[in-house]
Computed example of a mutant assay.
Amino acid sequence: MSDLTARKAALRAEARQLRQAAHDAARESDAAGQACRLLTGFLSGRAGQAIAGYMPIGTELDPRPAMAELARLGPVAVPVVEAPAAPLRFDLWTPETEMVAGAFGAAVPARSEPVEPDVLIVPLLAFDRAGHRLGYGGGFYDRTLARLREGRDVFAVGLAFAGQELSGLGLEPTDAPLDAVVTEREVLTF
């Protein structure tokens, strides 16, 4: 195991604890609701653009309230894992979409209607103030952003609790940067 791989594994363990603590604290407050309101306001200027959210797993901040609001302005999609080490596919989503179990415990639409997103709302374990994110280590979003950003602008915004901020994230050349991060406290742009 390389030094960077070991460092990222340690950071992921720390980040999971930070996110769990932030998630638990959010139950006693409106932190998740505030983050979704900030996200909706931030992305509402992109009316008509296809926005990809995600279906939350575990202690991820749930973007569905923001996605439901944004679906009034244009198409909203959710990711579908097609194969290991492959970029994600995105299928159309509305609050009424019938969902079924997908890979890694994330729900996916029962019927596939592919969408090519212009904006991605990205889940994460941790973020820093330079626009970097720490994911789960599968590289799905890094590969997806690399593919989508070939020849066009695709905006990536991380959604997280403020308590998920972590400095010193180990970066690799394949790590795709974020354009913004939204928390319950602020919108950071890079």
Rank of each mutant, 00 (worst) to 15 (best):
G139W: 03
V100H: 08
R19L: 13
G168S: 06
H132A: 06
S112E: 14
A180P: 00
V108F: 06
T183L: 05
D175E: 04
E116C: 14
G48C: 08
R129M: 10
R149I: 02
I57P: 00
L4V: 12
A160R: 00
E28W: 11
G58D: 07
E28P: 08
T94S: 15
V122R: 01
F161H: 07
F155A: 09
Q17S: 13
V115T: 10
D3C: 07
V76R: 07
A9E: 13
P177W: 03
L120R: 05
H23E: 00
R12M: 09
F104G: 02
R37Q: 15
R143E: 09
L178W: 13
W93Q: 08
T189H: 11
L169F: 10
M99F: 05
G139L: 07
R7Y: 11
V154M: 06
V119Q: 00
A126Y: 07
H132P: 00
A106W: 11
T174G: 10
V154G: 10
G131Y: 08
L171S: 15
G105H: 08
M1D: 12
A162I: 13
E96Y: 10
R111V: 15
P177G: 13
V78Y: 08
R64G: 05
A107M: 02
D30K: 03
D91L: 12
A160V: 09
P87R: 12
G41E: 10
T5K: 05
V119A: 15
Q34D: 13
Y141D: 08
S167Y: 10
A25D: 14
A9D: 13
Q34C: 08
A107N: 08
P173M: 05
R46A: 13
L171Y: 00
L92D: 15
D128Q: 00
G74Y: 00
V80Y: 02
D175Q: 00
G74L: 00
A35H: 07
M55F: 06
P63N: 14
K8H: 11
L178V: 03
P114Y: 10
M1T: 07
V76E: 00
F155T: 04
A31P: 07
L159Q: 10
A13W: 11
A15V: 13
G163T: 09
A26Y: 01
A71Y: 06
D118F: 06
V181D: 09
L145F: 04
A21D: 09
L73E: 07
G33F: 05
L134R: 02
A156C: 03
L178N: 05
G74V: 00
A71C: 13
M1A: 08
V100L: 14
R133L: 08
D179C: 03
Q20L: 12
A13K: 12
V154D: 15
S44A: 15
Y136V: 02
